[in-house]
Each structure stands twice: as C-alpha cells, then as structure tokens.
C-alpha cells in the first residue's frame, strides 16, 4: 500500500508517481488523504491498480483513467472521470457537472446524485447513478449506457446518438430527438448486469424505462428545422 497525504505532498507528486511505471507497476494499492477539493487528482493513470481517495475532490478527478479502479469516499467537482477509457470509478457521494463527459469506456458509478450534463458526449462508458441526474444529461451521448436509478432533469438525451438511457424515476422532459423505447429482454439483461457491476443488484430492472435516439436528426432535413 502506498499512501499520499496531500497536506504533505502535492497533487503533482501523486500524479508523477502514478505515471512512473517503476512505482505504479509494483504498487497495486494506493490511498490518498486530505484531498480537500484539490483538482486533477489521479489523472491519466495507465495501470491496473486500486485506489481509495478519502475525501472530497475538485475538478477532473480520475480524468482519462485507464485500467485503474478508483473509489472516491466523498463528493466530486466537475468532470469526474472525464474521457475515461477503462477501469472503474466509484463515487460514494455526489458528483458535480459533466460527470463522465466524453468517456470512452469503463464504468462510472455515482452513489449519490449527479448534477447537470452527466454523461455529456459519452463515447462508450457505462454510467450508473444511484440518485438523480440534472438537466441536459447524456447531451449528444454517442455510445454506452446511462443508468439513472432516481429522476432525470430537463432535456434528457438531447441530440442523442446511439447511447442507451435507462431511468427508474421521473424524467422532467426529453431533449430533441430523444424518445422512449420499449424495454425488451435484452435491455433488461443489459441493465441487470450494469446494476450488478455497480453493486446495486437489489434494484428491480422492471421499474426502469428505456430512452434512445429517434435518429431523425442524423441527416439534416429542413422539415426538422424546429428541433435544432
């Protein structure tokens, strides 16, 4: 176990150690303390390791993560796990705006609520939010799944591409080109698996609705101009 106290050493030293393969390859367990809302904690990791971040974090925690399994025992500022490629990021608290923005892969679990634009432009990541998500979530989402166990704010899935959205609670409103679609067996199976990975197997998949793209904005058509 390697431990970083950010009151003693700074974020630069932590990230440098994480990027130093001589250190990171030989240390599978990491702990970070006294985070105090600092930005860019544990970004750009490219190793299979387990990390516990004990405390609240600022912007872009776990940004562009590859392979690592990171747990944040606190709340997160904007852009947590932005552009993540693989691995798992689990937030015990709430997440601010743009959680999982443009992420290409891996799993992001938010045990609290996520603010606006959760999963914006997501490109293959799976995001599971135990609580609610704010407005414009999954805006221009391209690939992957966004699972919301609570409610979703306004304009969910606006200008959505091929991402799949599962919401258990109420949806304040759907964004342009986002429609409700039937929950088929394959979707229930997919959702069940995602909830299992998120350690939320006790939630019943039958309570969810599925949303996706109506695909009417895929090629510009003047008759749809009102939707733009």
């Amino acid at each position: 176990m390697i431990e970083f106290d950010l009151d003693q050493s700074d974020v630069r030293e932590l990230n440098a150690a994480l990027h130093n393969s001589d250190i990171a390859k030989n240390q599978s367990k990491w702990k970070v303390r006294n985070t105090k809302g600092r930005h860019a904690i544990a970004v750009g990791i490219d190793e299979t390791l387990e990390m516990l971040i004990d405390g609240h974090v600022g912007y872009y925690c776990a940004g562009m993560n590859k392979h690592a399994n990171i747990t944040v025992n606190g709340h997160c500022g904007p852009g947590v796990a932005e552009n993540m490629m693989s691995g798992t990021v689990r937030i015990k608290g709430n997440a601010s705006q743009y959680a999982g923005a443009t992420a290409h892969g891996g799993l992001l679990v938010i045990e609290g609520d996520a603010s606006s634009r959760c999963g914006i432009s997501m490109k293959g990541v799976d995001i599971v939010v135990k609580g609610n998500v704010g407005h414009m979530s999954a805006f221009m989402a391209q690939k992957g799944c966004l699972v919301v166990c609570g409610d979703a704010g306004d304009a969910l899935g606006d200008s959505l591409y091929e991402a799949r959205l599962y919401v258990r609670g109420k949806v304040a409103s759907l964004g342009a080109d986002c429609i409700e679609k039937p929950m088929k067996l394959e979707h229930k199976a997919e959702l069940k698996e995602l909830l299992k990975q998120a350690n939320l197997s006790d939630i019943n998949v039958d309570e969810f609705h599925r949303y996706g793209s109506a695909r009417t904005l895929y090629n510009f058509n003047i008759d749809n101009v009102g939707a733009y």
Partner: peptide, 8 residues
C-alpha cells in the same frame, strides 16, 4: 492544469 498533469 489537468492536461499538464496527465502529460507531466
């Protein structure tokens, strides 16, 4: 800052 941290 994040980009700098990622690229050291």
């Amino acid at each position: 800052l994040e980009l700098r941290e990622i690229t050291d």
